[in-house]
Amino acid sequence: MNVLIIEDEVPAAEKLERYLKKYDTDIQVLDRLNSVKSSVQWLSHHQQQVELIFMDIQLLDGKSFEIFDQVKINTPIIFITAFDEYAIDAFKVNSIDYLLKPITFGDLSSSLEKLEQMKKDLGSNGNAVDINAVLSQLQQKSYKNRFMVKLGEHIKSITTDKIEFFFAEGRNVFLFTNENRKFIIDFKLEDLENMLDPQTFYRANRSFILNIEGIIDVVVYSNSRLKVIPRLDFDKEIIISREKVQAFKDWFSGLN
C-alpha cells in the first residue's frame, strides 16, 4: 500500500513511518510533507499514486483543512493530531479515523485493520474496490471512541466505553466515567451528538447525553414522562420529556 504522510513534526512523522513498517513491511511511504502549500502541490500531481493519507491538522503554514479548499481529495485519510477539538471537522472530509497524539501501535493497527476489512468486504466478488464505496461506508461508521482530558499537568485519554454520561451545566460540559470521576471537556452537547455512536449514546434533554450501559432503570414519571436512573449516584434527575418518550423508547429497545 502506498502512503503519504502530512506532518510538520519530524519525530512524529518518523515514529509513524516506523509503526507503518512494523505493521506491514510492504507499506511504502511515498513522501513526507509538512505544510499546506507543499501538500496541495504534491496532491495536485501525484494523488493517483496514493492509497491512504496520514494527516496532521496543525501544519507549518496553517490547518490541513485548508488543503481541501484547494484540491479535491479522493483518498482515505487518517488524521493524527494533538487537537481533540477538530474531530467534527475531520469527519466532514474523507476521514477513516481520528487518532490523538501520542499514538500507539495499537491505535494505528486498529485504523488500518478497519480500512483493510472494508476493502475485503467490498472486493469480495473479485471486482476492483471502489474507493468511494469504502469512504462512504467507513464514514457512516466513524464515531469518536475516546476523549482527551486534563488531570492537573497530565493528559489522559478516556475511551467511550468508560463514560457513563455527559452533563452540561452553564457553559461547561462534563464527562463522568464509570469510576465516578468528572472531567470538563471542550465540546458542547450539540457537538457530541454528531460525534458519538447513536446506538450507544442518547441526548436525553438539554443537560444529559446518556450511555445505554450506564442506565440501571427507567421508571414512569409524572405527566407521562420518564425518569432515568443512572448507574452512578448523581444529584441531578434525568427526565425524559413527554415529547421525547417514544424516541427514547425506540433507542432503548434498539429500534433506531
Rank of each mutant, 00 (worst) to 15 (best):
N194C: 05
P76F: 09
Q47H: 15
K162M: 13
F176R: 08
I77S: 03
P102V: 07
R32K: 15
W251F: 02
R206N: 06
L175M: 13
I96N: 07
L115A: 10
Y143G: 02
V149S: 06
D121H: 07
R206Q: 06
V40F: 03
I67M: 11
V50L: 13
G214V: 07
D24M: 02
K162P: 05
L99D: 02
K188L: 10
N205A: 06
F174H: 11
E113I: 11
E193Q: 12
G170L: 01
Q47R: 13
G106D: 15
E213G: 05
L151Q: 10
K63S: 10
K144G: 05
I209N: 04
L99R: 03
L210M: 14
L226G: 03
A82L: 10
R18W: 00
Q58R: 14
H45N: 15
K21V: 00
I158E: 08
Q48V: 14
L112T: 06
M1A: 04
L138C: 14
D121F: 07
E116H: 12
K162C: 07
D61L: 13
D107H: 14
D97C: 08
L33K: 01
V93I: 11
Y86L: 13
D233Y: 12
T81G: 10
N94R: 09
L112K: 06
Y143I: 01
N132Y: 12
N74Q: 14
N127V: 08
E153S: 12
L59K: 03
S38V: 10
E153Y: 13
Q58A: 12
K72M: 14
E116A: 14
V220G: 08
G254Y: 00
A87W: 08
V71D: 08
K21P: 01
K249Y: 00
R206Y: 02
K150D: 04
E237F: 08
I229H: 12
S111R: 01
K249Q: 00
A12H: 03
R171M: 13
I73F: 09
H45S: 14
L20D: 01
